[in-house]
Structure formats: C-alpha cells, structure tokens
Amino acid sequence: MVSVNHYLILSLLMFSIGVTGFVIRKNAIVVFMCVELMLNAVNIAFVAFARMHGNLDGEIAVFMVMVVAAAEAAVGLAIIIALFRNAKSVDTDDAAELRL
C-alpha cells in the first residue's frame, strides 16, 4: 500500500539529487535544470499532501509553481544567453566578475 510517506521520501530523494547537481555542476544550464528538479520534488510533495487532505489547495500551489517555473525558464535562459554573449561560455565560474 502506498502512503503519503512514500511520496515524501521520493520527493526528498529528488530534492537531494537536485541540490547535489546544483552544487557540483558548473554549467549554468545544468544548474538551471537542477533547480527544476528541486521544484518538481516539491511539487510531488504538494500533490501528495493535497491528496492526503482531500482538497485542491496543494494542486493549485503546484500550478502556481509551474507558472513561476515557466517565467523563470524564460528569464533564466535569457540571462544565460546574455551571459554567453558576454563571457563566451555558460560556465558559472566565468560569471564571478563581481568578485574582486
């Protein structure tokens, strides 16, 4: 029998994978994708809780997360393109110019 805990553990695992990727990868696009992983991990938890409580608030929250993710994708990728145009790479190491 699958309970909410199963979904939560899955969510936790996925989130941890996302964090790991966020921390150890250098490529800005991959970092971005890892953020998406984390968002989705949270979404799973939301839907599971929504199902547990028997109302749709959690699902609405997921919907809003998707909206934010879409906006984030648009702006984030635009920033990556701008970064590439300036630094000729999407390596996050090359975007450390503000550090003196």
Binding site: V19, F22, R25, A28, T92, A96, E97, L98, R99
Partner: peptide, 8 residues
Amino acid sequence: TGQLRHYG
C-alpha cells in the same frame, strides 16, 4: 567566492 555552487 563569487561561485554559484558555493552559495548554493
């Protein structure tokens, strides 16, 4: 450090 991953 200016490194995104450290901040993360």
